[in-house]
Design a protein around this nucleic acid. Structure first.
Lengths: 267, 267
DNA sequence: CGCGGCTTTGATGTTCATCAAGTAAAGTGG
DNA sequence: CCACTTTACTTGATGAACATCAAAGCCGCG
């Protein structure tokens, strides 16, 4: 029903003896489409990933080894679907590199983007413990690398290590709170303010540069901040005419940060 | 800074020998204003409350007894402030009876209501594990009873009982997800649909009756679903003219549920 | 009794979505 | 690789939805 089937394990992971176990685990599924491009970069390993993720600080050596034995990773090309709404959640997934959109479509077919997932974000964390299925779909906006740890193994650790639970709760809370805060902030703002907000977000929080390539279409920006494609474009054009930004296709350069900040606050 | 100071412990709780300990605990604070009316109803006890709350299912007798020793309760009159944004979170609080609004005001002074807290909801659960302070304010819309369990004691249990942690995570996830889902649903809808939604929410989820007294002003409804007071009233009037609802001051009667449902879906 | 907050209605203007139409860019199949 | 199709982008015109402003009645409260 949801497009899952077994597929070859990424080569780096196969080299772990531990990983062999996974192949026989009833919990192991991969997406029907082959991983769009398995990253051959040998510097990325599951063990290293688990060991270095801030989420797992405080776990014992033993626990880390245990988890890394049930970890795999996949690379997704730009545009590829990572998880679909309704799929069963079998992993805790950690975005290691890239950018995802978390989205859903309402019954009348209109797409809504709930949030963007950035490196070190966990995927589906909200839904994991309140339901068995993803509540939103996840799609790659850039080439993205995702580490997946079997959910049942995480739960095994959770039951034994309350401190880890506290940490995970913190993770979930922070992520959820950011989404909620954002949703209400966006709602308060007029269209000019919303565009200013998202531009500052890309420049400040995602790309850390005043010049960046938009990873999303104008339409997707509209879906993210609740406005129509046409108005996204209109306000982009307006900001360009006013010398606040420069636009070259997908490339945006912020020219007048002060006015943009003022616009973010007051529309 | 935030209006906390010691105050007499509610009588029922004082009767627990365990509770005496609380009085000397550095963690014990009560609000500066006396609890607006301490409920003398002897049928409500902290022990009973902790034992019966679904959140605590699965805890051992010992653990329950431990927690109930660090539990107190307070009654808040309609309109009273329960927690203020920015206050330190010292308790996990459980709304036992009544209705609260979870709200905040933006820097330009406009109020926004994030959600309504119903009986059995936990207060500030989102913020507890991501920060030390309440992110939103909580105010009573009806006379409300709140049980508070010392946060440090909860954490003590959490570290030792991973299953309880899993349960709490589920709680947090579910609550956060409901808020997020709601926020995006409301955003999709036009004003007519929003009013229909909130009327159905009051009738179906809160009062379980087609006839109920609105616990909020028209202004607050606007703050909750993102529209102006005037338009809330206008659409109320429109629905009354169309025979969908009857209005008598704060009393609302839903007359035509089918049309209301249709309006909720399609505006 | 008078004041302030809540409610209500009408008039007005702004903001924003929709529609339409055209250009550019990007994928697709022969 | 080119013709073809589709998708993304852009601008303008129009109207609908919604906020704002104004005015008046109502109610509770000190």
């Amino acid at each position: 029903m949801n497009g899952f089937t077994k597929v070859s394990v990424p080569p780096v992971c196969i080299s772990h003896t531990d990983m062999i176990i996974i192949m026989f685990s009833e919990f192991l599924y991969f997406r029907k489409e082959k991983p769009s491009s398995v990253n051959p970069d040998q510097s990325v390993s599951c063990r290293e990933c688990v060991y270095s993720a801030p989420l797992f600080e405080g776990l014992s050596e033993e626990e880390l080894t245990y988890l890394s034995g049930y970890t795999s990773y996949q690379t997704f090309k730009k545009g590829a679907s990572v998880f679909l709404r309704g799929e069963e959640i079998l992993f805790i997934s950690l975005l290691k590199k890239g950018l995802l959109k978390v989205h859903t479509s309402s019954h009348d077919g209109k797409e809504q983007i709930i949030s963007l997932a950035r490196p070190d974000d966990c995927l589906g964390l909200l839904g994991v413990f309140s339901g068995k299925h993803y509540q939103y779909s996840y799609s790659a906006l850039e080439e993205s690398v995702i580490f997946s740890i079997e959910l049942s193994r995480i739960k095994y650790i959770l039951r034994r290590n309350g401190t880890f639970g506290l940490k995970l709760i913190g993770r979930i809370s922070t992520a959820a709170d950011a989404i909620i805060h954002n949703a209400f902030e966006i709602r308060r703002k007029n269209l000019r303010g919303r565009i200013a907000t998202i531009l500052n977000d890309f420049a400040g929080n995602i790309y850390h540069s005043d010049r960046f390539d938009l990873p999303v279409s104008r339409k997707e920006i509209g879906e993210l901040i609740g406005m129509t494609t046409e108005n996204v474009i209109r306000i982009f054009s307006e900001y360009r005419r006013d010398g606040i930004i420069a636009i070259n296709g997908k490339t945006i350069t912020i020219l007048d940060k002060e006015r943009l900040n003022a616009l973010e606050k007051f529309g």
